[in-house]
Nucleic acid binder design. Structure first.
Lengths: 125, 125
DNA sequence: ATTTATTTACGAAGCTTGTCGTATAATTGT
DNA sequence: ACAATTATACGACAAGCTTCGTAAATAAAT
């Protein structure tokens, strides 16, 4: 039976998940190359992190060939939901509205996003 | 010169900051009592955490009397801003709008909050 | 075929977090 | 005054994260 993912990815694990979500499947080498454009760590570091993530159940992998192919085992949506919920609790006293206000104050969304948000808000009323 | 606060409070540190933000000033005992209603850790644990937070510059303290009085040294607003920004980057590809959509999908804000958000959105257009 | 390169596996070290025990100093109660 | 309580300081430890070096196995290149 597959182990239940814990849903508390660390900073580095999130970076890796980002790549996997974006690419679907990827080898350690591919993930590492992509991270290298942003970060500065050795190949074996990325490898080790992904091995640990596999033990935790955060990713699954196909090791039928010598070069293993990895894939995220937690969805982006669920992870976002979980992390946002946690943040609302620990930093915004349970108020999603407060978080929204803060987010909008920090970075202005595009016109299109604004329209989308307004549509959603209307439907919530 | 006061050390610059690092702005990456841990989970436990956030719990303590929450109490300090709410009360303004508080002793270790007071913070601990309040946390004890939610959490289960010894007094010296809270003490140690607050001492470390002091070293980091996350809190300041008045130790003119035997019982030290602590106070947050980072504002709730700045901390929220920083944490939200980080989350937008690591989980939402830099899009605040996406975070907002997710937050609204997770927990419905009150009618009053919705109105507030809409007002803010209009002003952003 | 032999060398070179790639990949995984493993172990270890340094750092941070969270936990607590114990010692010491100060305060309070009787 | 003496005992009991309360506070700080300090050290230590387990667990987890991140880092990397090295060894062994496989694949590719010459």
């Amino acid at each position: 039976m597959a182990k239940q993912a814990p849903f508390k990815p660390t900073e580095s694990e999130l970076e890796i998940l980002q790549v996997l979500w974006q690419r679907g499947k990827a080898t350690v080498r591919e993930v590492h190359e992509e991270l290298a454009t942003v970060k500065d760590a050795g190949y074996t570091t990325t490898l080790k992190l992904m091995q640990i993530m596999h033990e935790k159940g955060l990713v699954k992998r196909n090791d039928s060939s010598k070069t293993h192919v990895y894939e995220a085992n937690v969805s982006k949506e669920k992870t976002q939901q979980h992390m946002v919920g946690k943040m609302v609790n620990t930093l915004f006293e349970g108020s999603a509205g407060q978080l929204v206000m803060r987010a909008l104050g920090t970075a202005k969304p595009s016109r299109q996003e604004i329209d989308e948000i307004q549509k959603l808000l209307d439907s919530l009323k």
